[in-house]
Amino acid sequence: MYEGAVQDLIDELGRLPGVGPKSAQRIAFHLLSAESADVTRLVAALTRVQESVRFCVTCYNVAEAEQCRICRDPRRVDDVLCVVEEPKDVVAIERTREFRGRYHVLGGAISPIDGVGPDDLRVKELMTRLMNGAVTELIIATDPNLEGEATAAYLARLVGPMGLAVSRLASGLPVGGDLEYADEVTLGRAFEGRRRIDA
């Protein structure tokens, strides 16, 4: 045990995800020996995050203004909407530079075993957004795990009667991988979603 302030810092750092007691101690001593300007910058960044970051009123992505950067961007197309679970999925899709539409962040996936049902997600908000008819295609980009698939099935059934084009992200073999190491579920999906090569 260390004295007051140092121990408090270690305890607080230890509550962060993925940081154990030893890592917390290492970070604490790094901060103690760091330049005071560096520490001030870190403190300022933490304060700013807490004060200015909120959820976008349209898509529920993290934003610093009323709307997020993507919802404010006039160059993006309005007729394609991509549904994701978390704000970090938006970042992952943005990195591909393949998608020019807008997003909707659900805030999780349907997982009855954790007590999370459709009412705990921003499903109602999604339906309200789809009501005005601007969106003609819905891309469901929830995680390719059980909860994500169930959420996709639920949403597809819910928006089915609205006459939108609904699609689900393809799943299959990772680029740069070996076929022989793929598990049978993934390989099966890759077969199911195979595409024709135009000669």
């Binding site: 009855p112 075993i113 954790d114 007590g115 049902g117 459709p118 639920y154 059934r157 819910l158 009667p161």
Partner: peptide
Amino acid sequence: RSLPLVDRSESAPRRE
């Protein structure tokens, strides 16, 4: 936890 969330409808969800 999962029992109250069981969807007992046969086809489309009730909220639709």
